[in-house]
Structures are given as C-alpha cells and as structure tokens.
Write a protein that binds this DNA or RNA. Structure first.
Lengths: 143, 143
DNA sequence: CACACATTATTTGTATACAAATAATGTGTG
DNA sequence: CACACATTATTTGTATACAAATAATGTGTG
C-alpha cells in the first residue's frame, strides 16, 4: 500500500469523522452528541433496557456505556432504576425530557442522512449501506 | 429513521471500529496503534514534514497531532527538529528505528486490507473506496 | 447446597479527536 | 516600518472507546 488514501481503515475513519461532524452540528442545538443520540434512539424503541443490552446493540464496551449514561443522567434525560429481578443490573428509563427529544432529534438527523444519500445514486447508497452493515455489524442483512 | 442500523453515521462508525480493531491487532506486535501507523506512513513517503502538513493530510486537529507525535517521540520512532526558516515550526523526522518499521508494518496492514477487500467483489470494493473517499476526503477522485 | 465460573456495572488508565485559549512567530497592508 | 491579522504548536477540558481490574451478584454442576 503506497498511499494511506488506499487504506480502508483510514478511509472509513475519515468518512465517519465527516458524517459524525455533520450530525454533531445538527444535534448541537440540543446539547447532545451523536453517540448520546444513538443511545437515546435505542431507548425510544424500547424503554427500560439493561446497560448490557444497550452495549450489545450499539457495539459499545460496558465502560463506554457507563460514561455515556452518566452524562445523559446528569442532563436529566435518562434515569437508572434498580432491576428487582437482578441486583447486579440497572434498568435505564427515559425521563419525560428524554422522551420529548425523539421527534425533533430524529428530524435533524434524518436531514443529515438525506445529505449523505444525496451524494450517491439510490443504488449506490443501498450498496454502501449493505457493505457497511456487513463490515461493521457482522452480517450482510438486517438484524 | 426507525432503526439506528439505517443511520449512515452509525454504520460508518461501526465499520470503522471493526477495521480499526483488525489493524490494531495486526500492529500490536510492534506496540503501535493504527493512528500512529498512518502518521508514520506519511513520513515514510516524505521525511521532515511540518506538524501542520501531517494534520492536513490526515485530517487531524493540531492538538491530536501533538499527542500522537509525543507518543511516537517517546517510543523513539520520530524526532522533532527546529525549522531554521520558521521558528514557530518543528520538522518531524523519522529515527532509524522509525524507518525500519516501514516494511513489516506495511506487510501486516496490507493483510488487513486484503481481508476487507475479500468480503466484496472487486467492483464493489472499488466502489466502496470511491464512496468513502468522496465522503471523507471531499472529492471523488484522488488527491 | 457449595463453589467454581459467569455476568453486570463500575473504576482506572491509555489513546484518539476536537474546541477554545495561549504563546510565539510571520505576513501583508497602509 | 508598524501593527492588525494569520499561522503554528501547545495546553486544557470534554467526550468517546477499549483493556484490565474490581466488586457485587447469579448460575450451574457435582
């Protein structure tokens, strides 16, 4: 490999960095980072999950989840409640404030997604999605 | 966007994470991280560059470059020398130890690249590269 | 049932990454 | 030439991300 611009790891990192910055800018008005957004997103789908479930879905280390939850809790968007069935576990619940953000934050991130998609043909965008899914989430298909 | 798995930012992040881990594992025997590797790679192409040139090429903030250089310097792989033409600047030079790593490290990262490519057809892999370049480095073509 | 082993969350340490501020030095316009 | 503005590297602070260690609790096999 003569040029770093031929290294897939490098290219993926830079593409991620760019899209992450677009999302960060879009979410800045709510004081939320992209990672905090995706964690909230999983809770909007299903409230009251365990930390380890969130980490599994988001492919994040437990230590990382702890930190993200700390910040979301400090902002008053989520709440840790003890799991009555397993005292090792907390269940993570959205606060009303956390629930309110679903619609507006999905709107601004949808705009970013459309911006990304608009750089390619529909066919290319779909292929990109399936290739990234295969690379990052292990399988070609959906989960 | 109903599922985070449809969010390009998320997919890019996870694909990057996976490939980064593969590279990290391959480079671990040399005690080098993927980011340190790409910085060294730019120096192998041309020794004696300024920090700001490295940051421009790698799309990294000056503060990030400072940190990466600190660690590479501590490991004895690079050296900061004053620029006689501009006293604001250091020029970054490879040490003999830093030069030695070029061949072996390129070999192990080439293996990772081939692993990534092998997941797709040649046509798909080329399209992926051009799409990531367009997304992350601004233009479709090469620089 | 006891106890080795597993699971869950957290803490600590290291490495990116960027924003904002700072200090030193260059450059360009009147 | 002076001085506002730009450039370069660094420092400080915040936010991921993971590895390794720890503490508390569960689970399964003899």
């Amino acid at each position: 490999m003569d040029r770093i611009e031929d290294c897939y790891g490098f290219l993926l990192g830079k593409a991620y960095q760019k899209v992450w910055q677009m999302e960060k800018a879009a979410l800045a008005q709510y004081g939320i980072t992209p990672v905090q957004f995706v964690l909230l997103h999983v809770l909007w789908e299903k409230d009251g999950q365990k930390g380890v479930e969130l980490g599994g879905r988001l492919r994040l280390d437990g230590a990382t989840i702890t930190g993200v939850l700390d910040r979301l809790e400090k902002m008053g968007l989520i709440e840790r409640r003890p799991d009555l069935n397993d005292r090792r576990t907390n269940l993570i619940f959205l606060t009303p404030k956390g629930k309110e953000l679903e619609k507006p934050m999905n709107q601004v991130t949808d705009v970013v997604n459309k911006e990304v998609i608009s750089m390619f043909s529909e066919e290319e965008a779909n292929l990109l999605k399936s290739m990234l899914t295969k690379l990052g989430l292990g399988q070609k298909g959906d989960r």
